[in-house]
Design a binder for these strands. Structure first.
Lengths: 329, 329
DNA sequence: CCGATCAATGCTCGAAGGGAGCATAAGATG
DNA sequence: CATCTTATGCTCCCTTCGAGCATTGATCGG
């Protein structure tokens, strides 16, 4: 499994550093995936990511000596580039690029972070802006059903598997992997496999960043600079997994919210719709929230109670999450 | 939560880099937590970690320009230091130390890895040897009941909480956290919280590495150089969590094994005993293994069937693990 | 050869968790 | 008032999983 990951990773970024060079690699880079969720009036919410330079790039900057710690460095850079404060922060993954910056002959170690906030005003030189997750990964949003996968992706993956039949690739293995990751042939869809899906599309030449492209061109979805879209996929996978066993959604919500607000937020992140009544049961039986006493009137229907997150659960319980249930409800 | 982690981390390693220094931090270091499990004839198995220099240090080395990737660098260093090949490898965490190496004025970025193997011959200049996990974390082994926690740790944590009552610390919060992490007051024990437990003991001054020690001296358990014991705790937490949803145990077992071998291995890692019949049921219903046809005769009782891991499951299923069940067995 | 002991294996019971759906309540709207 | 929309309560039922009981095959001391 890990070996597979490594193999794929090596395939992805060329291993072209001079052999036998014993100098130590230097230069650390910090990259942030800043996530917020736009409530969305009377409809689904949208998960957003902060990008710069026309949506092509994630905010980042070098780790400097003045920084007390990696996280402090990250906060500093993001706040200077975007004028936006960071809330919850979690390390994602560290990787090494073979000398991307041309001036310094060496690897750059990049340390990526996931950060959760609420949307806010942006400012900065590099045109920071909030972009929807699903502009980059349209196939990851299945709240309206998985049409894109069924209609556009499945056939192209089939073609890719077909192409592997003669070569070393083993078409059957390709088909199994595609079915597993994209929920084909009646297999279930696992939202937290976003990264693996992106990697498969990369291998299949179906994204713009691929080494070699499939004849029919890339899938819909905005590309990003370098590995950035891959890092975003990592963040999505991580957050989708984490939301199930840790109460992190609340970092993305307003202080007071209705249960439907909460559900829409979770659905936005998970990329799929959920059964309303069961969702409520889940939340309530876990004592994650408490009533504020006030009501929300602009629901479009019967007024809903407003809740707030019970911060106490963070220290009360080791494991407590928003066990995301399934269902198309 | 993340903020809490960061706060604690800042407390742990002093933030004493010169302020305002805008030079870029350099030098990346790779650290490996190499894990194996000794079968243990007719009894419990023992999880082992590879350490050097008298068991005080984890194998590590600088990331060099000649390395194609971080993992390749790690494999190179470990194999040269220990003459031991790495199997499954997974990244753990990256952190920055404020200039530990005196010669270079800068941070060192350390990237830690977890690697799983089987025990094998060792060789190298720095006295590599296999050491038991639980030499470093005696309280994490509850296969024989949690006596150490109940008798030695609980009272000292109580004292620590007591001490917080007057100060800013809030004794009640300390008590809650201790009870939560160490399963006091009838709370359940969560084996995957090994890291958090170590951090709490660190804060309470109960381990040798603590900034300031409690009057009665540290808890039993070998200390390590710098942050290394903390990294080991991270590895333990990660592996204990992972084992539940991914079939990684098999990396630690011989190619053919009995179900009891498998159970003992899982118990060794999880640090607690499990219900035998339910364990079998779990393994079998998941189709993780297949019979080899041979039998093991030296069981001490009725001969057991030998099994092998069905490698196919790695590509058949997205999520499949050894859902560790509880029970004292 | 017999009985004791130690594991391996098979099976059953019962509580808890979680997927689905029915039914009712309470505002907004025309 | 009829209808639409969302909020909320509650029931059913199947699967999962913690706990035990019971039996089967070997080994070993008498």
């Amino acid at each position: 499994m890990a070996r597979g990951e490594e193999r794929r990773a090596d395939k992805r970024r060329g291993a072209n550093a001079p052999e036998g060079d014993a100098r130590q690699a230097g230069a650390a880079n910090l990259i942030a995936v800043l996530v917020a969720v736009t409530p969305g009036e009377q409809g689904p919410a949208e998960p957003m990511v902060l990008a710069i330079r026309g949506g092509t790039t994630l905010p980042s900057g070098p780790f400097q000596l003045r920084h007390r710690s990696l996280q402090a460095g990250l906060r500093g850079w993001v706040e200077s580039q975007t004028h936006h404060p960071l809330g919850y922060v979690e390390q994602l993954y560290t990787f090494a690029d073979a000398d991307r910056g041309a001036d310094r002959a060496g690897h750059v170690v990049s340390i990526s972070y996931l950060a959760l906030t609420r949307e806010g005003p942006l400012a900065g030189a590099d045109e920071p802006e909030w972009r929807g997750w699903y502009e980059y990964f349209p196939w990851e949003d299945r709240r309206g059903g998985g049409k894109l996968v069924a209609e556009a992706i499945a056939p192209r993956l089939a073609a890719w598997a077909e192409a592997g039949d003669g070569a070393e690739g083993d078409g059957a293995a390709r088909r199994r992997r595609a079915a597993l990751l994209f929920g084909l042939d009646g297999m279930p869809w696992h939202e937290e496999l976003a990264l693996q899906r992106y990697e498969l599309l990369w291998e299949a030449g179906l994204v713009a960043e691929s080494r070699q492209h499939a004849a029919a061109g890339p899938m819909p979805g905005l590309a990003m600079v370098g590995d950035h879209r891959r890092i975003l996929a990592t963040a999505i996978s991580r957050l989708r997994a984490k939301i199930k066993y840790r109460p992190v959604v609340f970092e993305l919500l307003a202080p007071a919210f209705t249960l439907l607000d909460l559900q829409r937020c979770v659905e936005a992140i998970a990329g799929r719709a959920m059964h309303k009544q069961n969702f409520r049961r889940l939340i309530e039986q876990q004592d994650l929230v408490e009533e504020t006493g006030a009501m929300a009137r602009e629901t479009g229907g019967r007024p809903a109670k407003l809740f707030r997150f019970r911060r106490a659960v963070l220290e009360e319980r080791a494991v407590a999450g928003t066990k995301v249930g399934v269902t198309r409800g």
